[in-house]
Structures are given as structure tokens and as C-alpha cells.
Design a protein around this nucleic acid. Structure first.
Lengths: 145, 145
DNA sequence: ATTCGAATTAGACAGAGTCCAATTCGTATC
DNA sequence: GATACGAATTGGACTCTGTCTAATTCGAAT
């Protein structure tokens, strides 16, 4: 039974989670992890930075980017590329896909458990799949235009 | 039998294609269309610009972007968002998906005819699908690291 | 208290893409 | 051919996301 759901994220259990992924849990890293995991939203780097620096300015832009890339590297989070302007960071690393509301920019998870994809070609030899993204782009139907 | 395959793109039949999509076919627009359609590749804006200006500098950056966005708007081409750094423009507007080689940055089409996706949730009411992207990220298996 | 590597920082920088006011182009009219 | 006029194009400044670097600060171990 892997990936026991943590019902409530705290700085403490996040520090533990970081260590479990081979990441030295510093103040800034814990705050950034908390921003991502305590909400269940997909955040962009500048949103993370805004959240982390809400009270007092604590974390620099460089550290936010360093940390997000470190988290990616250690597979603590995933990146979602749906918008040409910015990358979203996704604390959910379980297999799942995304629905992207073009109007609001909101990104929603779609559980992969029920989804079946058939008829894909076999990979060229010497290639391995790193992952498959499915993005459903939606829009309000009665969009005034 | 819609979308009769054009075996050979020429400036002339591209001008016609532009008109058919409600686009005034100017020199620059024809050259940009030619760059995209005569190759069957996915090009980024700067690649388009390099191709168009190969012989003599003919087209400015602003025009390349204006034109690509105009083509998008008129559904002459599609954009493919797989790389956080740049958008690719795809002259193939038939339903199809993509395979993205993370190592080389090469993007390949996957025909959608054989692909079936089942188990997707129903859309929230008041929402319509604008499109579904499937991106398979691959990497050479014997990557030296 | 001192040390030392790791982490953080400010700010310069890079690259993609947008914006804008000025110019040029192409077509229509005379 | 000359003129007029709207559409298209242009250079260049600008914005925004993200990276880089050299200097500083942190924190754990001694």
C-alpha cells in the first residue's frame, strides 16, 4: 500500500518527506513544499513566490526556481506544460491527466485509474517512455464573443 | 473526401489556401506558410524566421509572430506546447498526437485514427472541449549519464 | 568560538514574445 | 503614371519567465 495519504501536511511531516527524497530540508524548502502540498492546486513559480513571501519577504526568486527544479529532479513534484507563458508545478505525482480551462487558466486533475489509451504505436527501438501527458483543453460553451 | 492531400506545395497553391482561410496572402505570409507546409516538421518561431530569412533578410520578428498568431487564429496551423521554452507550430491540423524526444527536442506525429481513449470523466456542464492533446515523452534508453 | 561546505541571495543577464508609432506596400482611382 | 488610403510590415523598446554568478549567510560539527 504505497503512498499512504497524508491527511494534513505540517512543516514537520514535510521535512520528513523531503528527507525521504534525499533533500536537505531547509527553512525555504519547507515553506515552498508547504505552499505546494497544503493547497491541492497547481502553482506557477511566481505564485509559489507570492505565497511564500506573503507575510515577510523570506525567499528570493533564485531560491524558488532552484528549489522547484530540485523538487522536480527528486521527483517530489511534476511539471505541467499547458500554457506557453508559464510552467505549472503539480504536487500530485500519482498517474493522472489534466483538464485545462483556457478561459480561467485553471488546471484540474483527471484520475488516470479509469482511463485507457489503446492503439498507440510501439516506440522506436532504443527509446523508453518517460511519461505520457493527456491534456483536455476546455472552454465555457456560452463564451460571449 | 475532405482535405485532399496536396502533394506539392507551391507559393501559388498556398496563396489559395490562405485566401480560403480568409487571410490576405502577402509576400511574407506566403513565405512563412511555405516554410511550414513544404517541410513536414514542427517549427518554432525562431526556426521559421531563420528559414524565411535564409537568403536575404526579408521578414521581421514582429511579422513572424503576427503571422503565426494569425494562422493560429484562422486555424491554418496548430500550436504544440511541449517545451517550456518555446512553442512549436504544426502545419498538420488533422487529429493527431505527439511524441516528444526529450533528448533531441524532436517532435513526431502520431496518427489519431487508431488511438482510442476511454474512461475520461464527463465535462463539467457549460464546458466544451476545445481539443485533446496527448504527448508521449520519450528518451533514448541507453542515455549515458 | 571557529570552520567549512551547502544554501541562499541580489542583481545582471538571456531568450521568447508583445507592443507601438512610424514607414512601406499594394491596390484602387483618377 | 501620380495620388490616396487602409492594411501590412518594421525596428526597437519593452515585458516576462527563468538562469547564472559571485558574494554572503546559514547551520551543523568540532
Amino acid at each position: 500500500m504505497p503512498n499512504m495519504e497524508i491527511t494534513q501536511y505540517t512543516r514537520d511531516n514535510l521535512a520528513e518527506k523531503l528527507r525521504a527524497h534525499g533533500i536537505n530540508p531547509t527553512h525555504q524548502r519547507i515553506e515552498i513544499a508547504f505552499a505546494l502540498f497544503s493547497r491541492h492546486e497547481h502553482l506557477s513559480a511566481d505564485q509559489v513566490m507570492a505565497i511564500v513571501n506573503e507575510r515577510h519577504s523570506e525567499t528570493s526568486k533564485a531560491t524558488v526556481y532552484n528549489t522547484l527544479n530540485l523538487f522536480l529532479d527528486k521527483k517530489l513534484i511534476r511539471e505541467v506544460i499547458v500554457d506557453p507563458n508559464k510552467v505549472f508545478y503539480d504536487p500530485n505525482t500519482e498517474p493522472h491527466y489534466h483538464m485545462y480551462d483556457l478561459e480561467s487558466g485553471r488546471l484540474t486533475d483527471i484520475d488516470a485509474a479509469d482511463v485507457r489509451v489503446t492503439g498507440l504505436p510501439t516506440l522506436p527501438s532504443g527509446m523508453v517512455t518517460e511519461g505520457m501527458d493527456i491534456i483536455i483543453r476546455v472552454r465555457p460553451s456560452d463564451a460571449a464573443h
